[in-house]
Every structure is written in C-alpha cells, then in structure tokens.
Write a protein that binds this DNA or RNA. Structure first.
Lengths: 215, 215
DNA sequence: ATATCAGTTATTGTATACAAGATGTTTGAC
DNA sequence: GTCAAACATCTTGTATACAATAACTGATAT
C-alpha cells in the first residue's frame, strides 16, 4: 500500500497531534510546516485538509487551521464510544475467534502480566493494546476492526493517563481474565459486558481525568 | 460553521459517490472535475485527498484516484457495524433520552406508519431515518451520534435496496414498536437487542443483497 | 501477425505567482 | 492619553507553470 507525499505528511501530523505535540488551538502555519517538511505549501495544504476532514483540526476560512484537542466532555464521549465498540468486537469475537486467536490472546495476556510484574508501564501499555487488537481482529469484521483501531489510536495518549490514575493495574488484569474466559466459553453477552466495563471511564475517575488534561 | 471551497467540493463528491453517481473503479479526473466545478485543479486535489483519507476513494500514486465502492463483504461488515452502533445508541438512550425525545420518537414512528399506509416508500425512508436519528441523539453522546450519522449516510443507498427486498415493511414497523417500548421502560439491554436485530442484515437476506449490487 | 521498443501525449505531483482578505501598526484627531 | 482610520504586512486561497512519470501510438523486427 503506497502512500503519496501529502498523505504521509497528514499521517505524521496526525500522530503529532495525537501524541500531544500540539496543544488545543495551536495554529498549523503553512509556511512553517512547508519548511519543516522541505516542500512547498501545496502538499502541506492537502495534508491539512485531511486533518480538518477527520476532525483533528478546525479550519477558519482565510484565517488558518487550528488543532482541536478534545475537551473533557468529548473525551468522555470518545471513551464511552470506545467501550461500546470494544463490546461489539467482543460480542462478535465470542462466536468467531479462532483457536489460534484464543491462543494469541492468552499469550498477550501473559505478556501483560509479565510487564505488570516487572513494573514496566510502557511495556504494559504496548501489550495491553495488542491484547485488545487481537479481539478486534477476532470479531472478523474488518470494517469494525478499522473503526476500533482508529479510536484506540486517537485515545492512546489519554488512556495512558487514565491507567496511571487508575492506581491498581491489577484490577485491569482481573478484567482481562474475565474477558478471556467469556471468549473461551463463547459467551457473547458476557464478553461484551466485560469489555464494556473494562474500557469505560467510571464516573468516579472523571475528575481525575479532567485534571490530567492540564499537561 | 463555515466551510471552505475545497471542503464543499469534497462533500459534494462524497454524496455523489454515496448516492451511486459513480461506480466502483471510476477514475476521478482532476481536469474534468475542475471544469465541472469551475475551479482550478488545486481545490479539486485538496478535495480528493479528503475522499481518499476517508476511504471513499483509493489513490494510486502518479495514476490518479479511483472511487472505491464497498463490495458485498464490506457491505455486510458495514451493516453489522451499524447494527452495533445502533445497539449502543439504544443502550445509552434507554436511560438518557428525555421525555421530549420519547415524544418525538413516537411521533416519528407515527409518521412511519402513515407513510407505510400511504405506500409512500420515499417518505417511509425519510421518516425511518429520522426515527433512528432521534435515538442517536437520545444517547446523549455527540461523538457516538456523529459516527452513527456518518455510517447511516454511507449506507443510505444500500439500505433502500435492502428494505425493498425485505418484502414486509410491516415487520420493520413491529420492530420499531418494540424499540420504543424498551426505551420507554428504560430497558437498556432490550433496547440494544431490538435495535441490533432491527438493523442487522439477516443471513437469509444475504444473497438478495448481493444480487442487488448489480445496479 | 504479434511482440517489443521508441517517441509522443497526457496526467499527476510540486512549486511558484498572483489575488483577496485579515491582522497589525502608525498616524492623526479629539 | 486614547480611539479611530488609513496604510502596510502577512497569510490564506486560487491559478498557472513546470517537472516527472505513466499511458498510448506507431513502427520495426522476428
């Protein structure tokens, strides 16, 4: 899958925004970006249109495009949507995931536990993402999988702070085991419920989440 | 909410593709489009990037961009995802929809019934969309609502053929009533299940759906 | 007759030039 | 000293010019 220049720039900028490289309201100056990427304004502008269309940035005609980081309310909404997407993946995966997929899943869960034991947070985040991605794939619905991956990517930076505040990562591990068990037993409703509860941001954590936005 | 020229062009093209104005594989010629929209190639190219990034079209470097209509498999996946999104909206709406929202919903349902009685299919489609959109809004999650609206829009042309093949629209009406009842009783699980079943393309209808793709 | 290669044409990708509007600054009046 | 208006500057939006590569055509050789 080849990409054209403008699209590579768009992806790079997208990741920069997602990883917190820009704050809300920052203007994406065309000439500055053109210099940074060593191209003319034309491909930069094409890339900016992509960011605007996906809601990452907002364009004010004749004024410029400005990055649009989600506020606390939108963030909650995105987490809630993620929870429902994960629940959907779990529901479908319960009856569709292959034996090989289940094998992968238990392995990924072991890696999570190992990272947790080693207090290696970065590693835990990576393994945790993989765990969930296996479930997305297990749903055997590439469109839904793509949606889930996209939102997971969009929420990555915020999920880290959420997990940090969560305190006991052990709880997260216990939930993983419940999820695996439900999938092994092909219990769609239980898998969906477990995943929904695992991802959703509880109301009690809401204020902590908001506080974490001042980074 | 102001839009810039390139974005208006992108939206127009998007709707054109969604409404079947282009067939799969059609090339979107820059100069032709530039003439049609009475602009230079620059804004056209910016619009095309938007289409490509949202998956509506595929770009082959130095060759051009080509519209990418979903095939039968992807279409099934999109319907399945839509079913899950609707279920999620129903689940959340069950406890969040306002009295005014329920009022709107029953009214919209009445309009559906009226259109059905008058054998006015176009009107039924419109009222049916409105019925579902009220539920999206009732979920009180604007991010999820936007996702649902987007997919609903993307599937509009195909849902029409699906409903036609369904034969008895009466069944659709009965399902609506079940949905309304679940929402009135704040029964999240029942609302979710009813909506999921209402939207999902049953396996028995699969071949009919595939056959309908030759339009 | 078919296949291959060279030359031509056409189309995309990028850069630059120009037009239009917004921001900022300076000057002047009160 | 403050406010306002005109001017200058900067930025975006659009068009056009140029460069690079792919498609096409035709001719030649086998």
């Amino acid at each position: 899958m080849e990409l054209t220049r403008a699209h590579k720039i768009a992806e790079t900028l997208e990741q920069l925004v997602f990883s917190g490289g820009y704050k809300d309201g920052d203007r994406l100056d065309e000439v500055t970006l053109a210099e940074q990427f060593c191209v003319s304004r034309t491909p930069i502008r094409e890339a900016l249109q992509v960011l605007v269309s996906s809601g990452i940035a907002r364009q004010i005609p004749r004024r410029g495009v400005f990055v649009r980081q989600p506020g606390p309310v939108e963030l909650m909404e995105m987490f809630e949507t993620m929870a429902e997407l994960e629940a959907a993946c779990g529901r479908l995966a319960a009856t569709r995931i292959t034996e090989a997929g289940l094998q992968e899943l238990t392995e990924a869960n072991s890696h999570c536990r190992a990272a947790l034991g080693a207090k290696d947070h970065a590693q835990y985040y990576a393994e945790n993402e993989r765990f969930h991605q296996i479930i997305y794939r297990g749903a055997s619905n590439s469109y839904l999988e793509k949606q889930a991956l996209h939102l997971q990517n969009k929420l990555r930076a915020f999920r880290k702070t959420q997990l940090r505040f969560r305190g006991r990562l052990d709880q997260s591990m216990a939930e993983h085991c419940e999820i695996v068990d439900a999938l092994q037993n092909a219990d769609a409703d239980r898998a969906a419920a477990a995943l929904r509860g695992h991802v959703v941001v509880q109301g009690e954590k809401f204020h902590q989440l908001i506080a974490s936005l001042n980074r």
